[in-house]
């Protein structure tokens, strides 16, 4: 049985002009503990597809199966991290945010706190357990969001451009932190991004999508050893290959934005 199967998924948007196909006949499988990045130009429906996997949207055709079960609505087998920092609950401390899912599971308070602290340690925020989100920087807020999505131990982590709104330096730090977290937890990760370098840095496999309507254009394995060096020749070569699939003209030392 395939851990995650995306099977002929088609999605339609309702617009004033009628129905528009956002994603068309997308199929791919994802293995356990695999880190998959979905890359594509804006408008290719990559975020929409992630929302379908998360269960926030229903596909017009096709289905998504996780461990053989068809996805219907959201479930605690998946954790979600959004791009917007505002996803955290401002009225809860970092610890309170991370405990939320455990609270919903009915886990007693002492146990909740213990797990939440552990998760915050994993994202290196153990000193900020009692801080409210508005006292944390954007990068720290996203780390809390990652800890929050991991705390109730879902098998799949869904991430929708979580670092896109961060400055470049913070983003680099966050990527290496996420790679560490992934190594430690071995979750299956589906990560949407438009940043080619980010995809090459993080992914085992990159799904390249094209737009209008969104379809899978290429499915590329990234076989570089970890931790990855973004300045190595192989890394840059991988980026070039990806960019070619995205339709960019690649010359000399083309580096992703």
């Amino acid at each position: 049985m395939v851990p995650i199967a995306i099977d002929n998924v088609t999605l339609e948007y309702d617009t004033p002009a009628g129905k528009v196909t956002g994603v068309k006949d997308v199929s791919f499988d994802i293995g356990a503990s695999e880190f998959v990045c979905i890359v594509g130009p804006s408008g290719c429906g990559k975020s929409t597809l992630l929302n379908v996997i998360a269960g926030f949207l229903a596909p017009a055709a096709g289905e998504i199966r996780i461990d053989g079960k068809t996805v219907k609505g959201h479930g605690m087998d998946r954790g979600v991290v959004f791009q917007d920092f505002a996803q955290l609950f401002p009225w809860r401390t970092a610890l309170g945010n991370v405990s939320f899912g455990l609270e919903m599971k009915g886990i007693p308070k002492a146990e909740r706190d213990r797990i939440a602290r552990e998760q915050l340690r994993l994202v290196k925020l153990e000193k900020f357990v009692d801080s409210f989100p508005h006292h944390l920087s954007g990068g720290m807020q996203q780390r809390v969001a990652i800890a929050r999505a991991l705390a109730y131990d879902p098998s799949v982590l869904l991430m929708d451009e979580p670092f896109a709104a961060l400055d470049a330096m913070t983003r680099d730090d966050m990527q290496s932190l996420l790679a560490d977290v992934w190594r430690a937890t071995r979750k299956t990760v589906i990560y949407v991004t438009h940043n080619v370098a980010e995809a090459v840095y993080l992914a085992d496999r990159v799904i390249v999508m094209s737009a209008h309507p969104g379809t899978v254009q290429a499915d590329i394995k990234i076989d570089l050893p970890r931790p990855r060096d973004p300045l190595s020749v192989e890394f840059v070569e991988c980026q070039k290959q990806l960019m070619r699939h995205l339709g960019h003209k690649v010359s000399g030392n083309g580096v992703g934005h």
């Binding site: 926030f56 959201h74 505002a86 899912g101 919903m104």
Partner: peptide, 18 residues
């Protein structure tokens, strides 16, 4: 109320009451 909070809470298993 930010719809993202509702989404995030829903994803973490919050029922109507929560």
């Amino acid at each position: 109320v930010n719809p993202l909070w509702l989404r995030a809470a829903g994803a973490m298993g919050a029922d109507e009451n929560a």
